Amino acid sequence: MEMSVKVPWFAYLANYVVSGFIPDEMEARERRKLKHDAKYFWKDPHMFRKCGDGMFRRCVSKEEGLAIVDRLHNSAYGGYLATSRTNAKVLQGGFYWPSMFKDIHMVVKSCDSCQRTGNIGKRNKMPLTNILEVELFD
Results as ranks from 00 to 15, higher is better:
H73Q: 08
V134C: 10
F137K: 12
W42M: 01
G78I: 13
L34V: 00
D53I: 02
L72Y: 10
A11H: 13
V134T: 14
D44L: 04
V60T: 07
N124P: 05
G65F: 01
V69W: 02
R123M: 07
N87Q: 10
C111P: 06
R32Y: 01
W42G: 04
L136F: 15
D70K: 13
K109Y: 09
L34E: 05
D53T: 09
Y96D: 02
T117K: 00
N124R: 13
G93E: 12
T83I: 15
D37Y: 08
I68R: 00
G93I: 09
S4E: 09
I22K: 03
G118P: 02
V18T: 01
K109D: 06
F10H: 03
D112S: 11
N130S: 06
Q115Y: 09
N74M: 10
G54I: 03
S75W: 09
F41A: 04
D24L: 05
G52Y: 03
R71D: 12
P98Q: 10
D138N: 14
P23I: 05
M47F: 03
K35V: 15
W97I: 01
M106K: 14
E64K: 11
K62W: 01
Y80L: 13
E25Q: 06
E63H: 07
R29E: 11
G79I: 02
F137D: 13
I120W: 04
K6S: 06
E30G: 03
M26K: 02
G78M: 06
W42Q: 03
S75H: 10
K62Y: 07
K43V: 00
V69G: 09
N15H: 11
S99L: 08
V107F: 05
M55H: 13
I104N: 06
R57I: 06
G54E: 01
L132A: 10
A88Y: 14
G65R: 04
Y96V: 02
